[in-house]
Amino acid sequence: MRFHTRKWIKPEDLNPNGTLFGGKLLAWIDEEAALYSIIQLENQNTVTKYMSEIDFKSSATQGDIIEIGIEVVKFGNASLALKCEVRNKMTRQTIIKIDKIVMVSLDKEGNTKPHGKIKVEFVKDRLGDS
Results as ranks from 00 to 15, higher is better:
86 V>K: 09
34 A>P: 01
27 A>L: 11
81 A>H: 13
127 L>T: 05
5 T>M: 00
122 F>G: 09
113 K>P: 04
81 A>V: 03
91 T>Y: 00
105 S>G: 02
8 W>T: 07
54 I>G: 00
13 D>P: 13
62 Q>R: 09
118 I>A: 13
108 K>F: 08
48 T>N: 14
39 I>A: 15
129 D>G: 13
110 G>W: 12
75 F>D: 06
57 K>T: 07
6 R>Y: 02
37 S>T: 02
22 G>V: 12
67 E>F: 07
40 Q>M: 04
22 G>R: 08
25 L>M: 14
97 K>C: 00
16 P>G: 14
105 S>M: 06
64 D>P: 11
23 G>I: 04
54 I>W: 02
69 G>R: 03
76 G>R: 09
78 A>S: 15
37 S>V: 02
79 S>V: 03
74 K>V: 00
36 Y>R: 05
66 I>M: 01
67 E>W: 12
111 N>Y: 11
104 V>W: 03
43 N>C: 12
12 E>D: 09
117 K>S: 10
126 R>N: 08
106 L>H: 05
104 V>T: 03
59 S>F: 12
57 K>M: 15
57 K>W: 07
121 E>Y: 11
116 G>M: 04
31 E>T: 12
74 K>W: 01
45 N>K: 15
124 K>A: 14
38 I>W: 09
118 I>F: 06
60 A>W: 02
15 N>K: 09
89 K>N: 06
92 R>T: 15
50 Y>K: 14
75 F>K: 04
15 N>T: 06
26 L>E: 07
107 D>M: 07
5 T>L: 06
34 A>R: 10
68 I>A: 00
109 E>L: 14
50 Y>W: 07
11 P>R: 09
87 R>K: 15
19 T>I: 12
55 D>S: 14
1 M>T: 07
94 T>A: 08
33 A>G: 01
